[in-house]
Amino acid sequence: MQLSNSLICRNLNFSRMFFLVNCLKRLKSSQQWLSRQNADPYVEKAKIYNYRCRSAFKLLEMNEKAKILFPGQTVIDLGACPGSWTQVAVQKTNADGADSSKPKGTVLAIDKLQIFPIEGATIMSNMDFSTIDAHDKVIQALNGMKVDLVLSDMAPSATGVRELDKDRIIGLCYMAIRFAALVTRIDGNLLFKVWDGKEVPILEMDLGRFYKSIKIMKPKASRSDSSEKFILARGFRGIQRPLENGRWG
């Protein structure tokens, strides 16, 4: 019994030590994140321009270069929460009708999470865009209209296992591509985020079968230590044959 109690004590001490080490790691990580946020000029700019987060400037910069957002367009923002890309899309498409001299656009924002209302956007919270039910609701909301541009700044929650995280975002990319193929008009566009890796050239090759041009973009607003980049696929050709799960059929 004495030996057993000794083992129990040692295990408890080890558990406490492991817990404290983890707490210290998280504290250090949080402090680094806070320091980086405080030193980030885009964080302050987001507050000044009333964007919900700094990622708005990624889309603004890419739009400045590629000219993909115009008044009167129909745009869907996938994985939209908290909504900064949706805010930019509303402004650039005039979906809020702020400029009566320009055509009024339509913006749909979809996410599994709750998105707080954005004037000029149709919000579809608590919805998994990859489901048939979500697709049906999108078609209904659009009243049969096809989409000019699909946006996606989605990324999976990080597991800390690099290869697993890359596989997960590639899976998300293919789901976004599949969704876009079902709702986009001929010659429409798709812009989505990916993490750099050996799978990206294969992704580009698959996209090339359905879009006229593929371009990799890395906005300055992306953090220098981030492996994220964005793929702009322009000129949707349409679907020649059915799509299968995960990859093109």
Rank of each mutant, 00 (worst) to 15 (best):
S15F: 13
R26K: 13
I68C: 03
R247N: 15
L7P: 00
F70M: 11
L59I: 09
P156V: 09
K218P: 03
G197D: 09
G246R: 04
M145Y: 01
K25G: 01
L232D: 09
V75F: 04
D136M: 04
A39C: 00
H135G: 04
D133W: 07
R54G: 03
I186D: 10
S227E: 15
R168V: 07
P82A: 08
L24Y: 10
A95Q: 01
R168L: 12
L7N: 13
A39N: 13
I118Q: 02
S30I: 10
R168S: 12
R178F: 00
K25L: 12
F230G: 03
N143R: 06
Q87A: 11
M17Y: 15
N38M: 06
S101Y: 11
N38A: 07
N38Q: 13
G238R: 07
S100L: 14
S125Q: 04
D225P: 01
A181F: 09
E119P: 00
L190W: 11
P82I: 10
T131K: 05
G197P: 10
R54L: 08
R237N: 12
N143P: 00
N143V: 01
E61F: 05
E61Q: 12
Q31E: 08
G105C: 08
V43H: 08
I216D: 02
D153N: 05
P219V: 04
R247Y: 15
A80F: 06
T86E: 05
R10F: 14
E119C: 03
I170W: 00
Y49F: 11
R26L: 15
M124K: 06
G188N: 08
W195Q: 10
P201H: 07
G83M: 04
A121W: 12
I110T: 08
R241S: 14
Q32E: 13
I202K: 11
Q114C: 02
S35A: 14
E61A: 08
I139C: 02
L7H: 10
N189M: 08
L108Y: 11
Q240Y: 04
K65Q: 13
Q32I: 15
A155C: 10
D111S: 10
L142Q: 06
I239D: 06
V138K: 10
G120K: 11
Y42G: 03
G83Y: 06
G197N: 06
K112F: 02
S35E: 11
A46T: 03
L108Q: 12
W85F: 11
C81K: 09
L20W: 12
E61I: 04
F230Q: 05
K47A: 11
G249M: 07
N50P: 01
Q73W: 02
V147C: 04
S222V: 01
L7C: 03
S213I: 00
K104P: 01
F179H: 02
V88H: 07
F14G: 00
I118L: 09
G238I: 11
A221G: 04
F179N: 08
L172V: 03
Y51A: 02
L232H: 12
V138E: 10
C23R: 13
L20I: 13
M175C: 00
R241K: 14
